[in-house]
């Protein structure tokens, strides 16, 4: 197995995630796209951990998973908050503040 095959897979997932966060209007879908990006980082870390033969990558990846869970929780709470106030979770409608 090549190192770069895993890394390229990670890069592809990362870019798809980037496309998703730009293209998507629905807040929940944006959060899902962020998960794609975070998973690509984890693939990178674990590929490097195997390459370097060290455990730090595993630990780092576990911490990222934990933080990602916290972020999803916060993100969904905010989505619920705006849904309650506006009856919509279209991010594009959140443009009162500008200029």
């Amino acid at each position: 197995m090549l190192t770069s095959q895993f890394l390229l897979l990670g890069a592809i997932l990362f870019c798809i995630g980037v496309y998703g966060v730009i293209a998507r209007k629905n807040a929940v879908l944006v959060l899902m796209s962020i998960e794609l990006i975070l998973n690509s980082v984890n693939i990178n870390l674990l590929a490097f951990a195997l390459r370097n033969g060290s455990a730090d990558g595993h630990t780092f990846a576990l911490y990222i998973i934990a933080v990602a869970a916290a972020e999803v929780g916060v993100g969904l709470a905010m989505v619920l908050l705006i849904y309650r106030n506006r009856r919509s979770i279209g991010l594009d409608e959140l443009s009162e503040l500008r200029g």
Partner: peptide, 13 residues
């Protein structure tokens, strides 16, 4: 579900 400017994402990605 998508923004009107969704295509912007393709060149960026």
């Amino acid at each position: 579900l998508n923004n009107s400017y969704a295509r912007l994402g393709i060149p960026v990605a």
